[in-house]
Amino acid sequence: MQPNNFFALRRWQFYLQKHFTDSFRFYLMALLTVFGLMTAIPIFFILTSSAFGRLSNLAPFYYIGLFFGGLLFTSWSFNELGHKEKGVDFLMLPASKFEKFITIFLVSTIGFFLLYHLSFYTSYKIIDSARVAKYGQHIVNDYSFLDDPKEKIYIYYAYMALQAVFLLGATYYHKYSFIKTVLSLFIFILGLYIINAIFILFLFGNEGDFWKSSMPFVMVNKLEMTAPNSWHPTLYVIPEWLQKSYLFAAKFLIAPTLWTIAYFRLQDKEI
């Protein structure tokens, strides 16, 4: 290995070349599978019925493919470490842990994101052509992915945060990583909910079971008795500055923090 054990551009280029040579068939099959499903299912419904006349009809396929496909693809990162022989080969390759991590990171985040949207656009054009051939009409563009409304962009913040969770999970679980990460995420969310419920019960008590209609660490919908057998809901919300802090963390801190933890987790990996 070259004297620079953290990052050397030439060495990284050699590792990239080896990585794509070894994984090209897998990446191609994954891309074709996603593309085939996104294309074949809508075309089938177009040919058998008048469905999918609007772009909004395709939006669920877009988001399901983005989240399920992207998170499943990310969960296969560092899959070599689940097998002793492949794991030894992966760790012993003359490239730094950072170069190996940044390669997987770029492929599973930027690479998948770009190729997925290229694939979806190509799929949309084929589906549109099929509709024109069947009905003589183009798909009506009634759905804007980012600007109508602008809040849709938060879907992408959520995707990046989840992608970071599954990349971190891939450094912990090398077999059945997707299922194990989903289970771990569920347990984590359930734990937060229980902690929030206990915290709120200590503050407000359990009158009216209002804790069931609260958003953890954000708001509480308390039912207060205004008259005998009469309850009036009162909404308690955290201060605006704390809301903005939550929003900033969700947009800019959660994903980079988890990516960083995943890198250091890989640094400590042994076979």
Score class of each variant (00 low, 15 high):
residue 257 T to D: 03
residue 101 F to Q: 02
residue 2 Q to F: 04
residue 124 Y to H: 04
residue 28 L to F: 05
residue 226 T to I: 13
residue 219 M to S: 10
residue 9 L to T: 01
residue 197 A to H: 11
residue 266 L to D: 11
residue 53 G to H: 02
residue 40 A to T: 09
residue 161 A to H: 00
residue 268 D to Y: 13
residue 175 K to F: 08
residue 15 Y to Q: 07
residue 100 K to Q: 03
residue 209 D to C: 00
residue 229 N to I: 09
residue 107 V to S: 00
residue 22 D to F: 01
residue 67 F to E: 05
residue 55 L to F: 11
residue 104 I to S: 08
residue 246 Y to F: 15
residue 117 H to G: 07
residue 221 N to G: 08
residue 181 T to K: 02
residue 48 T to C: 14
residue 20 F to H: 00
residue 64 I to T: 14
residue 179 I to A: 15
residue 88 V to W: 07
residue 30 A to S: 09
residue 130 A to F: 15
residue 73 F to N: 14
residue 185 L to R: 04
residue 259 W to K: 02
residue 64 I to V: 13
residue 144 S to Y: 02
residue 183 L to I: 05
residue 96 S to W: 02
residue 271 I to S: 15
residue 60 P to Q: 11
residue 64 I to C: 10
residue 232 H to P: 09
residue 235 L to M: 15
residue 113 F to L: 03
residue 150 K to Y: 11
residue 143 Y to E: 08
residue 28 L to S: 03
residue 171 T to C: 03
residue 237 V to W: 02
residue 232 H to Y: 10
residue 158 A to T: 11
residue 135 Y to L: 07
residue 190 L to T: 13
residue 29 M to Y: 09
residue 174 H to C: 11
residue 152 K to Y: 14
residue 120 F to I: 02
residue 72 L to C: 12
residue 79 N to C: 00
residue 45 F to Y: 10
residue 251 K to T: 04
residue 160 M to I: 12
residue 97 K to D: 09
residue 79 N to S: 15
residue 148 D to R: 10
residue 129 S to V: 00
residue 98 F to L: 15
residue 139 I to F: 01
residue 5 N to G: 12
residue 52 F to P: 04
residue 79 N to Q: 08
residue 242 L to R: 09
residue 4 N to A: 06
residue 37 L to H: 10
residue 261 I to T: 11
residue 253 L to F: 12
residue 123 S to I: 01
residue 21 T to V: 09
residue 260 T to S: 14
residue 156 Y to L: 11
residue 122 T to C: 05
residue 42 P to R: 04
residue 70 G to M: 03
residue 138 H to M: 14
residue 137 Q to S: 15
residue 74 T to S: 10
residue 165 V to K: 04
residue 264 F to C: 02
residue 258 L to W: 00
residue 177 S to P: 04
residue 38 M to E: 08
residue 158 A to C: 12
residue 1 M to L: 02
residue 29 M to N: 04
residue 143 Y to D: 09
residue 11 R to F: 12
residue 23 S to P: 03
residue 148 D to K: 13
residue 81 L to V: 03
residue 186 F to C: 11
residue 71 L to S: 06
residue 10 R to T: 04
residue 134 K to P: 00
residue 173 Y to N: 05
residue 76 W to D: 02
residue 117 H to Y: 09
residue 42 P to M: 01
residue 136 G to F: 05
residue 206 N to E: 13
residue 52 F to L: 13
residue 7 F to G: 07
residue 145 F to Q: 07
residue 101 F to W: 06
residue 153 I to D: 08
residue 138 H to F: 13
residue 105 F to W: 11
residue 97 K to M: 06
residue 68 F to Q: 01
residue 36 G to P: 10
residue 19 H to R: 08
residue 210 F to W: 03
residue 270 E to N: 06
residue 249 A to F: 14
residue 184 S to T: 06
residue 150 K to H: 07
residue 11 R to S: 15
residue 154 Y to T: 14
residue 220 V to Q: 05
residue 247 L to R: 12
residue 105 F to S: 12
residue 50 S to C: 03
residue 247 L to N: 14
residue 111 G to W: 04
residue 146 L to M: 05
residue 86 K to V: 09
residue 167 L to R: 07
residue 49 S to H: 08
residue 13 Q to A: 12
residue 100 K to W: 00
residue 201 L to S: 08
residue 105 F to Y: 05
residue 210 F to R: 11
residue 253 L to K: 12
residue 47 L to N: 02
